[in-house]
Design a protein around this nucleic acid. Structure first.
Lengths: 147, 147
DNA sequence: TTAGTAATGGTAACTACTCCTAATAAGGAA
DNA sequence: TTCCTTATTAGGAGTAGTTACCATTACTAA
């Protein structure tokens, strides 16, 4: 009898589909947040299995996609090969070391001017951009010079 | 009988491994250069088959990788799904339309300052960077408003 | 012409990922 | 708490894109 209008709002925000916070989804997100790195789906799968030995790989993929849609994680596709995931939600650039293949988050302000410039030049509507830098990270520079 | 010393030079440039410009490789590169777009490997395969009906898909992939290593083409991986290839050699940014999924080359000067800023902030050695912009292209904006 | 080997076609194998289905469990209502 | 609806799961089969393998072909240089 008692209607709950504020819950209704929430539901609308989530696009008519209540998502349930399952144990699996929770642990997948936590795992990703706890590693500061950018693991592959398979790495996450292996890691989560330590807590949920019976979780299936499909569940990991499904949840990564759901979390991505919800904006809680980021999928990085540009590297060389596999998709990697990133728990940080705020936009940031990435750096890939061409030697050790680690991916670093860059603490550099997004250059929103670039978007505007592109919009002006092309007439396209720009909603976002990303950038990746390539080169040699400090660690690998060190080990280079010591050889 | 006539020796051609300039060929020797070429060989050194190609890193001790003579690559042969086969009919297949030539046509693959030309096909890619002639389409101004960013086709998938499979699209290239279909197109090249019009001229070389017996070419195998493996040959297309092998040659795309070789051409990539030689710096003659670019592989774009960031989009949603499949790899796409780009015959342009000079660096440029890309725009992906989130509606029609076309990829456009942007005629915007590379922002080399960004690289320097990142290098200063991180101590990494930056050799290159790329950027992708996302949004809605002019065509799709038009068809949007007419509906 | 001949030796050496890069490249090819055809196909099998691999890998990252998605889809399918019956069973399970989250979470709202009573 | 108990019930009910249905989102989500495990597990496995299936798929698409790509690479590896190998016997054969075709350049290249001597």
């Amino acid at each position: 009898m008692v209607t709950t209008p504020n819950k209704e709002k929430l539901r609308i925000k989530m696009k008519n589909k209540r998502t349930r916070l399952t144990r699996q989804r929770k642990i997948i997100l936590e795992t990703l947040q706890q590693t500061g790195s950018h693991p592959t789906a398979d790495w996450i799968y292996q890691k989560v299995r330590e807590q949920l030995p019976h979780i299936s790989l499909g569940t990991v993929y499904r949840n990564l996609n759901i979390l991505k849609k919800e904006g809680k994680i980021l999928e990085l596709k540009y590297g060389k090969d596999v998709s990697r995931f990133d728990a940080l939600t705020k936009d940031h650039y990435h750096f890939t070391c061409e030697k050790c293949h680690r991916i670093y988050d860059l603490d550099v302000a997004l250059n929103k001017d670039l978007e505007q410039m592109v919009a002006q030049k092309t007439g396209f509507k720009i909603t976002s951009h990303q950038a990746e830098f390539y080169g040699i990270c400090s660690d690998c520079q060190k080990s280079d010079s010591s050889n």
